[in-house]
Design a protein around this nucleic acid. Sequence first.
RNA 1: GGCGCGGUACCCAAGCGGCUAAGGGAGAGGUCUGCAAAACCUUUAUUCGUCGGUUCGAGUCCGACCCGCGCCUCCA
Length: 476
Amino acid sequence: MIRFHNTLSGKVEEFVPIEPGRVKLYTCGPTVYDYPHIGNWRAYIFEDLLKRFLRFRGFDVTHVMNITDVDDKTIKGAAAKGMSLEDYTRPYIEAFYAERDILNALPADHYPRATEGDNIQGMVAIIKSLLDKGYAYRKDGSVYFAIDKFPSYGRLSKINLEDRRPGSRGDADDYEKDSVHDFALWKAPKKGEPVWETEIGPGRPGWHIECSAMSSRFLGLTFDIHCGGVDNIFPHHENEIAQSEAANGVKFVNYWLHCHHLIVDGEKMSKSKGNFYRLSDILAKGYAPEEVRFLLLSTHYRKMINFTEEALAQARTSRNRIRNLLFELRHIERDLPPAPAVAQAIETARAGFASGLEDDLNISEALAALFELVRSVNTVVSRGELGREDAQSVIDFVADIDDKVLACLTRDAPAPADADTLEAWVREKIETRQKARAGKDFRRADEIRRELLEAGIVLEDTKDGVRWKKAGTAKS
RNA sequence: GGCGCGGUACCCAAGCGGCUAAGGGAGAGGUCUGCAAAACCUUUAUUCGUCGGUUCGAGUCCGACCCGCGCCUCCA
């Protein structure tokens, strides 16, 4: 049984899709006024884990992620550079796709942009329906949603509007509304802003309406899962529910999953504090993308991650424990009959891994199952009792869950163009060192080993000869 | 003020009513090794922020309190 924490109920619930075997998933994507930061990736990697797990369990997942390319920030940014919205947002969209691939997140099936194709028309249709039904009203060319017409407003965020602290609302809009809590569906034209001529008049969409329109376009009026960061619960997702359910008269989303924030060195990431990181900043420190992904993945999605250099280092050593086993297994050549204990250990790990993730994506439990396999297999290896066949079974199992779910264990960086010359150079060094060792010239042998280490090559002297691997790529 | 999250070993982190409190890192001792690396074995919380309560039995449920944090305005 798969269970997820549903923000709507505040509880962990059994997951039952609308249509057996299929999951319709919508995740709030980037607002492309700037490059994505590592906190954004926490959310997208959580969503990737969710999607991969559902596919792992055999569901056919349709995933839609919107790209917000028209809002206050993109308009302002484009205006400041004297560019069109499209030209202004393009590099950020491209960076988002590029980083997604670097972090090995699966692409969504659709990435609708708000300004693209008929999307604005879709939004207008909902707004029109809301006006017809009396949920929305016009004011000075703008259209607002009247939240007092929608009694269940606040159900998702558990916000009682009467309790909201007076004076803290800091209305950023320059528009007049009947009630301060009402939100804009459609914004009247302003100088220097893009304008769409539509049935409800000229203007541009409010922020929330795009998700209502674009989710329904691909997933239907009611769909299974909607994700985002906790900060989206209010007002964004609350407003989406109000708009969609008022307009359509049916439930909008069955399961709302929200991930917690990532903080850096114990503090919220912000540009003014100077603790604002992009993926490229982390990679520049010498960490591999897979190590970053492992860290983002290895903390439960509803728990805050404290992103620190130490956490990154721990993610690396932790991940290396698994990779060291795979390295070891690839060198096993003995032919021994398969040990029943190994097959048993693999099955235990497979079951533990799956049941951990089934329980609201309990990644700690899933990884613990994997690490228990690592230890038990290492034990057999250290006794020299593991044969080639068993080794391959373990490799296949790890490759399988990595390929389908974790996506950060077995994939190696592409070999550099000069891989062959590197290989030859290392072989030559090892040979020289072996001669030195044979002549008990350990000082010379250690020198060579140190030289290789500085080049990022780790040597291991084993009974069956010397072997080498690339070290972690961090500078220290 | 309202809503919500968290406080489990040196660090990260599961467990959420009942066998000896998962797992990873780090530390200590041992094995292997010329020395390393990797790995294995042993070891590191009579105790789960504090104080009460419920219970035959509580990190696990209830209440109060202390500490840290997020949201309530754009934000993953």
